[in-house]
Design a binder for these strands. Structure first.
Lengths: 308, 308
DNA sequence: CCATATTACGGCATGCGTAACGATC
DNA sequence: GATCGTTACGCATGCCGTAATATGG
């Protein structure tokens, strides 16, 4: 059993059972991949892939287990390489972060700026997606760190860390009647057309629960993935916007006005997650500290169940 | 990075940093091992082993991490092979059980007999050791299943299953005055020279705690690893023996008499443990069912956190 | 007919074993 | 001086890539 063979089957599955695509992604030849897969199957004495003639049409049941184990082996190989890099080329490497739009746009920039100036030789990549995708990418080892509010902390494969809490605010045009109110109520929000995050993408489920529990039905006319889109439509006078409070910046978002809503909704907590069995480069820990300064490197390591 | 390089460093560590011994254990040449280790170190850009001239004298800090990861990779490779075997050669393979003397002698025989008749092509090996060793062997992947009363259920790396509970009995010569007593007390036990298990090897710590809590000091004249030794000395009239109740068999152990002590001590539970991330062959699950019939195969798989 | 997988084959890298050397205790 | 690790070298294995072939949609 060779290491490449595991990489091959892994990539073939990733590429929807297309050996040609896999061979390209692996920068090698089609026949090579085909051959090695056959050799592996022969060695194990079973079919990993279901074939229809010469076409791969599925993964057999034992094949699924093998692919899963292969992924773990590859992760560990990567971990070993990282240990090597950590002790030889301290400050270079890669860092891939998976996160949602809101975090990427409003919360990460400060930490990212600090990070790239301190670690200019680390190639930083940000993958954007919904919370489920973020979780999946970290779990699959495609991202080192995942940051999201929903979902991520529930996956067994990840070790998570509460990162910070936030709440919501309402953005309205300056002339809006609600600006006169001293303290907003849920009824106030329900009295106007509401624009907020797509429910699947953010803490929306929490928001909807609060309304539901109060027996109030908000008039949601429109949902969007990100606060910028929401603000645009609020500016057009299509409704009032309910967004994360960190997504409002008075100077940048003028003439829109923000009205605090934190008394209406419980705080949401944004979590940061890493794969439990991943080896974390020092700069990864540093990035986490930059993002949530209240956790220093040692604390992070402890909380994430790293060794000593 | 090649698989055998990982096997090489793993084995070298196992052999106390002796490359010659490792090469022999691996059925290959000394220079080959030496060379591959150097290549790996070169590829990773660091020293795995501390050298004093040409002598290996230790493992560097990054080396420890790498060795650990290497062990995991090898375990997963083994898992992959097992998946292969499971689906191709259903009923042959190996089963290594680590357990204590008491279990091996008095509890396993029935299950083992049933097992080898049903799976004649499975090579069954029993490693005997104290509870700490049992735990370690399973955790290191050197044994598939560990069975012990103490210790084993506390290791994070293992998934455990309560297997059965047991208590203790007193064995005495037929002429002993205690035979007349209808119900024994701790004081009765303390009144005579006591022979029992070595404290480190069994539920002895629990026994000593019971005495201590009652403010009674037993007169332990002698401790042994196993019940057979204890019974031998009881037969010689050197004292009374406190042993696991399953270690007494009226017909075999005559003329000794057993007196129930289960009202004096809380029940002890014997656990069965497997490595969390091990792939379990079907016959391993069957063995577990044979050992504790109240758990059927599905239950076992669920309890041990195997996938559906 | 095009896309895709398998077979065939030759060149090249690499791992292995034997033998010799060097170092450590 | 005995044990142990490293270096040197030749052989064999096996992987890779190109070209050719077969098969499925």
């Amino acid at each position: 059993m060779k290491f490449h063979q595991l990489r091959y089957i892994h990539e073939v599955v990733r590429q929807n059972l297309n050996i040609s695509a896999a061979s390209e992604a692996l920068h090698t030849s089609q026949p090579g991949v085909s051959k090695q897969i056959q050799l592996l199957e022969e060695e194990l004495g079973l079919q990993i892939f279901q074939r229809n003639g010469k076409r791969l049409v599925g993964v057999t049941e034992p094949g699924r287990k093998i692919v899963e184990l292969a992924a773990r082996v590859m992760l560990d190989m990567q971990n070993i390489k990282r240990v090597g890099d950590e002790y030889s080329q301290e400050d270079s490497g890669e860092l891939t972060i998976a996160t949602t739009h809101t975090q990427a746009r409003y919360r990460l920039p400060a930490a990212v700026k600090q990070f790239i100036s301190q670690y200019p030789n680390v190639k930083l990549t940000i993958h954007q997606g919904n919370p489920a995708q973020v979780t999946e990418q970290v779990a699959a080892g495609e991202a080192d760190i995942g940051i999201a509010t929903e979902n991520i902390s529930k996956d067994e494969r990840l070790a998570c860390l509460p990162c910070y809490t936030w709440n919501r605010c309402l953005v309205v045009p300056p002339s809006h009647p609600l600006v006169q109110k001293t303290k907003l109520t849920l009824k106030d929000l329900a009295a106007y057309p509401l624009i907020t995050y797509d429910f699947a993408f953010t803490g929306g489920t929490l928001v909807s629960k609060v309304f539901h529990d109060a027996g109030i039905e908000p008039n949601v006319v429109f949902t969007a993935i990100d606060a910028d889109v929401i603000k645009t439509y609020v500016n057009l006078g299509l409704g009032i916007g309910l967004i994360a409070n960190m997504a409002y910046d008075a100077s940048r978002d003028a003439p829109l006005v923000s009205l605090d809503c934190s008394h209406l909704f419980p705080d949401s907590t944004t979590y940061l997650g890493v794969r439990r069995d991943a080896f974390l480069r020092d700069y990864m820990l540093q990035f986490i500290s930059m993002l949530s300064p209240e956790h220093d490197k040692r604390t992070v390591q402890r909380l994430l169940h790293q060794d000593v």
